[in-house]
Nucleic acid binder design. Structure first.
Lengths: 148, 148
DNA sequence: TTAAACATGTATATAAAATACTACTTAGCG
DNA sequence: CGCTAAGTAGTATTTTATATACATGTTTAA
C-alpha cells in the first residue's frame, strides 16, 4: 500500500515553490535539487498547472510559481487529484469480478477507512508543511535565503 | 493506492472458511469458487497457516479450517500481517534518498493518516463480514447450506 | 533570431506483483 | 503396501503499473 512517486513528486514541487516564495523556479532546478527524473517531473508539473495549483511561464527566464496560497492547498485535495487509482481492492474497480460483491461487507468498511485516511489529510495544508522549518528546508534545497 | 491481491485473497479465504464453518475446505475448491489462481492462493494459505489464522490438514480428505474464532480476527491485524509494504512514500522506506526528510513534516502527517486508516480496520472483525448475510454468501460461493 | 524555458506524445526500462511450473511430503484408504 | 488426494516449497516466467528517456514542438525575453 503506497502512493505513487507521481504524487510524491507533486508534493515536493509544491513544497519547493512554497519555500522559494515569490521567485520563479525552473523544472530543471527542482529536478536537480531532489535528484529525480526531469522528464517525469515535467508531467507532474503540467498536471499541477492544468489543475490550477501552479502557473507556468514559458520562454527565457520562465519558470513556475504557486498559483494559490499555501494555506489553501490541502494535502487531501492534492492526493485526490494526483493519485488516480484510489481503489483499494478489486471491488472498487470497473472490472470487478469478485463473486461475493453483492453480499460482501468489506467494501463499505474499506470505504470508511479510506475516508478516515483522507479526513486527516484534509486537515493539513501546504502552509503546515513549512511553518517554523522554512529556513531549514531552504537550506536543504540549496535555495538562497529569502530576505523575509 | 491499493492493497495487493495477496491481501485481498487472504480475506476471501477467511470469509470462505468462516461461511463453511466446521467443514473442511480445499484450496482447489476456494480457487475455483473465486475463479483465481490456485497457485497464488497456495502461497496465501501457507502464510495464513504459519501465522495461525488457519489449520491445514494434509492427505486425503485434508483441507483447511479456521483456527481462531471469527470474532477474534480483526481486519487491521490481517492487513498488517499480509500487506508487507505499508510505506506510503519514499521517506518511509529503508533506502530513502529524499533530501528534505530532516525538515519535512509530511511523514508525521502521513503516519497520522495511516493510523486513522488502520484504526477503522481494527474496529471490524471477520464476524462482522458475515452477520446477517451469511446465507447469501454461502449461496454466492456455492456452498451447500449449513443446517445451523 | 537565438537560447532558455515549458509542452506533448511516444517508446523503453524497471520493479513489483501475480501466476505457472516442478518436485516433494503427508496421510487416508483399499 | 502402494495409490491418490491433499498441502509444502522453491523457482521461473509473465504481466502490469510505474517510472524514465527520447524526440520534437512552442513560446518569449533578451
Amino acid at each position: 500500500m503506497h502512493l505513487t512517486r507521481y504524487t510524491d513528486y507533486a508534493l515536493r514541487v509544491l513544497i519547493y515553490l512554497a519555500v522559494k516564495g515569490e521567485e520563479r523556479s525552473t523544472i530543471h532546478e527542482i529536478a536537480e535539487s531532489f535528484g529525480v527524473s526531469r522528464n517525469h517531473l515535467m508531467k507532474v508539473v503540467q498536471d499541477l498547472s492544468r489543475r490550477g495549483y501552479i502557473t507556468t511561464i514559458r520562454g527565457k527566464h520562465g519558470g513556475l510559481l504557486l498559483n494559490r496560497a499555501p494555506e489553501e492547498i490541502t494535502l487531501g485535495g492534492l492526493v485526490r487529484d494526483t493519485e488516480h487509482e484510489l481503489s483499494l481492492v478489486e471491488c472498487f474497480r470497473d472490472h470487478n469480478e469478485c463473486i461475493i460483491t453483492p453480499a460482501c461487507r468489506l467494501k463499505p468498511i474499506f470505504n470508511e477507512a479510506m475516508e478516515a485516511f483522507m479526513a486527516v489529510l484534509d486537515r493539513y495544508t501546504l502552509a503546515d508543511m513549512l511553518g517554523v522549518r522554512q529556513q531549514q528546508l531552504a537550506r536543504l534545497l540549496l535555495i538562497p535565503a529569502e530576505e523575509t
